[in-house]
Structure formats: structure tokens, C-alpha cells
Design a protein around this nucleic acid. Structure first.
Lengths: 334, 334
DNA sequence: GTGAAAGCGCTAACAG
DNA sequence: CTGTTAGCGCTTTCAC
């Protein structure tokens, strides 16, 4: 392995000067710089990140913390989009991404410890289980973090404009004649609550009354199965809704299946709006009208905020990302 | 920050002994071990991976190299499943995962250099662009690698039993009466070629003749659009096939859309079989019959092989993962 | 069983 | 503009 000492010896300069060249210091003559760079090239020098981190206390690594209850892991389309956006900006600013788990070295130790051991500069947290004590521990630490879909007063957060998204969905349904609009919720998660509240508020604003039987909760994991169960529940209501707004596309897909089982057609019998705009949405039959979350922007914004924080920014930021209603075929005018 | 020196001082032992305790050496008395462990706990000691890696030349980090032509990034369901499986076993064996890009420190430098700088112990390569010179450079290096969906004589490889999968699909179609079976290929990728060859061979084995107009190539990126275009092509054939086997579910979805545009119904007019079993497959209308790749096993097997290689295994291994035909609703008996 | 000493590759004062 | 010196935290001979 070639080190800066080899280059120093080869060129006749000191290791310090060599180091300075690689760190872009300005107090090195152009001639020296060239010689050193050429030598580095010739010898095949590659810097050693571990050594550098050891002295600088900076790893240029960002931890990706991804906790998901459904077992879908990284498969979840929301996660994929967010990370892709995050990765692009992080990479362009010189950071690498590392997965952080509760385990390290093959044994349990918690996220915070994992981060400390690896010298992680900051962490992006996606889809957290807010009750996880290891997650809490991380929140209370002074390591820079940005949280997606969470509320926090101590760490920066990013999330979609859930309330506005729901308003758009409900207003749209209202505009095409629907009055009996049901809601399949995402359970007691941050996004779930925001969307439920948004629904209640939107209904109020439109002067619509909410039939309590028309509000059911899917489970916190936003699975298709859960949406299916919720829809079954909904169909037991004394009065059938003419439209349902589901807090997630998976829930909507599940609802669609349940309706099919009951011989109900979308949108002829019941209109349906989802939330997310997962890839599958536009290929369903009927194509799903839904509120699109911009996962890429969610991710890139999170990266901006985290890096700001890593590089000394003190203030706790909050990013609310706009959403848009994508009208397809799953709603009919009354 | 607490170091082993602090613990040494605190307990009265030497740093060496402290180090030995944390590395599980046996030549430390039980009493000493306890004292040191207790002190570590009390002082809140956390080991420093950078320092350790600097001396041991081992980072316990595995690089994840993911090159994808379609721009879907980590979103691709194949990638997600593979990585999830990989991560599980890697984590359990003490390794962490890091994304490897062509860029590091915000500038271009190639995968190999990135790995060297970070001191990566090994790399798992998913969906590579075989012609990428940076990828070639990595292949030629002596850093342990495992490749998914690639052929290689110098690195270990893992892939699905493509030929067998196609055979199952074609045999199935044959068994329910189809004779004019078309193929939408995945282009000049490793999997694409294996599946095309599998198709040709299966047709031969069944004594079926292949209509040259019934073999069209989707593009190498397996997108829905590409499948759509391929199907359009197919529909120009003098004789319409009764069934089509698509080399990927996305291609199948695209084909389905093209058929819809032409007023053709699946499976009434044309039967359709895909390959992958992406999440969406079972929610399409009609639900897609397809060859399921076990992405989780693909990933976990890859991890086993890579770690074997990292830990000294010399031989180049090859893993071929079984696939299974999932029969749903997109084929009809003739 | 335990410890002293050297070194992994790099950076950061501080001089000159 | 360039070099000396002293670590960063840990492991590894090699003695004792």
C-alpha cells in the first residue's frame, strides 16, 4: 500500500506537504503540487479513509436507519424513492451511505452505539417505530439526525404535506359529486394521524358530516391485507359510502380487492382515492387516482437538511414537501 | 471519548490487556476480564472502528454496487429483495453495508478506488452494466466480489435458474394447449440471453417451431415501456401468437397495456406469462402468471459466498437458485 | 497472565 | 511555501 510517506520520499517533500496537496491547501506552490500529484498517480496512491477519520473525527459517512414494521424491508417503494433522492445529494457532497442496524459485529447493541462505533457523521431515519427505545436513545443523543414522517422538537424533520394532500383528494371527490366519503386510515403513525386529521378538517370545510362508521383504521403497516380488512369493515356500515379515501396506496389496493370480492366495482359502485402513488398505481385496473408523494424530493431535502446540520447548522429545521393529486380512473362523477 | 487507555488507567491494567478482553483472547484471567468489562460499562466505552481498521486492515464493511440502466435506482423490486436477503446474513456475521458509487468525496474516481479508499472488505454487485470500464476494473482487482446475474470466471456468481424457469413457463403453456408461443426478450443482458436460450431450447424439446416474427427483444432495461413496444411489434406478425412469454414482469405489464390498446384481452385473446413475480403481479387484472425469482435467497446466498471469499475461500463459486412457476389468471386453456 | 513499545496512515499545530 | 513533531485509538509482537 502506498502512503503519503512513499510519495514524500519519492518526491523529496515532506508528508505534510503531500497531505496538504490532497487536502487542497493553498499554501503549496503549483510546481510542488504538480510533482506530488504526478507521483501519486505514478505510484498508484489511494488515500486511507480510516486513517483520515481517525485524526479528523469525521467519517463522511451517513447512516441510513430504516425500521419497518411490515417486514417488507427495503422493498417498500416509499423507502426506495426516498433513499434514491437522499443518496444523490449526499454523494454529490462527498458522503457515503451505510446501513445502520441494531446489530453490529454480529451482536445487538442499538443504533446509537452502532453509529458511534462507526463514527457516523449523521443519520437519516426512515419509517421509524417511534416507541423503539433504541430509536429514542438516538433521538436524545447529539448526533445529527433528520427524521422522515416524524414529529420532533429536537431533530430536523421532513414529511409530505399530508393535510393538503388529503384536502385535495376530498375536495376532488366533493367536486365530482360525492358526499358520503369514507376514510381508511393508516393507524397511529405520524402520517396516519396527519391524514386522518386532514380528512376530518377537509370534510368540515366542505360542510360534510362524517359518518363515524365511515372511518376505519388500517393497521400501522399500510399493507394490502390491512386495507382489505378495513374495507370489509366499511362495507358493514349501515349506509354504504360512495367514495373512499385510503391513507396509502397499499390500503387502497386492499380495499379494491375486498370490493371485488363483494361484487362491487370501482369506480362504478364506489370511487377510490389512494395516497403515495406507488409504481403499481397506474397499472391497476382501474388505474388508481391518488395523492402523489414526491419521494425523491423528500429524500434530497432530507439530505440537504442533514448535511447542513452535520456541518454545524444548529437550528432544527422542518421540511414540508408539496404533494399533488393524480387523477386516473378510480373515481366517477355522481 | 473514552478509549482503552482510559479503561486501562481506571482499572490499573495495561491497554494491551484491555484490548485483549475486547477481542476475546483467552489469556486473560476471568477476574481481570470482569473488572475491565465493568469499567468499560461504567465509563461508557465505545470502540472505534476506524482505529481498529487502521491496524487490522479489515473494515467489516461490504460494498453494495448497484448499477442500473433504467434510472429506477434502488426502487427496482429485484434489487430490494436481493439486498434485503443479503443484509440479513451479512449483518448477522458482523458486516455492515455501504453503497459504493463511482464518486467519492464528491468527485469521480471509480468503484475500485472507492472501495480501496474505504477499505471495503468485499463487494456485492447487482445489475451491472458489464461494459462499464469501472466495473471491469473492479472485476480484475483482487478484491472479493460476488456478482448477481453475470457470468464470470474470476468472481463468484449467483443467479436464478433462468433456463429452468423458462422451461416451466413454456411447458405450462404447452400443457394447456398453446403451440404458438411468442417471446419478448430482455435484450442482451445475461438474464435476457439465458431466458432467450431457455425459450429456444424449451420450444425445441416440445417439438414446437419458433416463428421468427414471434421473438422480439425488449430493451435491456426491462421497463414497462419497452414491453409495450415489443408487444406492438409482436402484433404486426403475420400470424398472431396465442401466448407470449415475457422475460420480465415489467415487460409483461407493458405487453398487457399494448394489448389493451389494441382491444385484445388477456387471457381470452392472448395468454401471458412473465418472469420475476414482482409485488404488483398478483394485483394486476388479470393477475399475472409468472416465474418467481426468489430474490431473498439470491441475496442471502450471495452474502454467504462473498463472506466465504472474504474470509479466505479461494475457489470461484457459482450459485444457481431455483425458481417456481406461479400460476394465476393470465393464461387460458385452448 | 500481563505489559512495553512500535506502528497502522494521516492531519494539525507550530516553526522556520 | 515547506518541514518537524506529536498524536488519533487500537492491535501486535515480544518480553517478562
Amino acid at each position: 500500500m502506498i502512503t503519503i510517506y512513499d510519495i514524500a520520499q519519492f518526491t523529496g517533500f515532506s508528508p505534510t506537504t503531500v497531505s496538504k496537496v490532497f487536502n487542497g491547501y493553498s499554501d503549496v506552490s503549483e510546481k510542488t503540487r504538480r510533482k506530488i500529484l504526478d507521483a501519486a498517480d505514478e505510484l498508484g496512491y489511494v488515500p486511507n479513509a480510516h486513517a483520515r477519520s481517525l485524526t479528523t473525527k469525521r467519517s463522511w459517512m451517513i447512516g441510513v436507519l430504516f425500521i419497518e414494521p411490515s417486514g417488507a424491508g427495503i422493498l417498500h417503494p416509499y423507502f426506495g424513492g426516498v433513499i434514491e433522492g437522499f443518496k444523490q445529494v449526499a454523494t454529490s457532497k462527498g458522503y457515503d451511505l451505510m446501513f445502520i442496524s441494531k446489530d453490529i459485529g454480529g451482536k445487538r447493541s442499538g443504533y446509537l452505539e452502532h453509529c458511534k462505533i462507526r463514527g457516523i457523521d449523521g443519520v437519516v431515519v426512515v419509517l421509524p417505530d417511534a416507541s423503539d427505545p433504541y430509536f429514542q436513545e438516538l433521538l436524545e443523543s447529539k448526533i445529527p439526525c433528520v427524521l422522515l414522517d416524524q414529529k420532533s422538537t429536537v431533530k430536523s424533520t421532513v414529511y409530505s404535506d399530508n393535510a393538503e394532500g388529503v384536502r385535495k383528494a376530498v375536495s376532488y371527490l366533493h367536486s365530482i359529486g360525492h358526499r358520503k366519503i369514507a376514510h381508511i386510515g393508516g393507524g397511529p403513525t405520524f402520517a396516519g394521524e396527519q391524514r386522518l386529521n386532514g380528512y376530518i378538517q377537509a370534510m368540515e370545510e366542505l360542510g360534510l358530516t362524517i359518518n363515524p362508521q365511515h372511518v376505519v383504521q388500517g393497521s400501522y403497516d399500510y399493507t394490502i391485507e390491512s386495507g382489505s380488512r378495513a374495507m370489509e369493515e366499511l362495507l358493514k356500515a349501515d349506509e354504504r359510502p360512495t367514495a373512499v379515501f385510503a391513507a396509502g396506496d397499499n390500503l387502497a389496493v386492499g380495499a379494491m380487492m375486498a370490493m371485488k370480492r363483494h361484487g362491487l366495482r370501482v369506480p362504478e359502485d364506489i370511487s377510490l382515492v389512494g395516497f403515495d402513488d406507488i409504481e403499481m398505481a397506474k397499472f391497476l385496473t382501474p388505474a388508481l387516482t391518488t395523492v402523489r408523494q414526491n419521494t425523491y424530493v423528500l429524500g434530497s431535502r432530507a439530505a440537504d437538511m442533514l448535511i447542513y446540520s452535520i456541518e454545524g447548522g444548529e437550528d432544527v429545521q422542518k421540511g414540508v414537501i408539496p404533494v399533488e393529486l393524480v387523477v386516473r380512473e378510480s373515481c366517477r362523477s355522481l
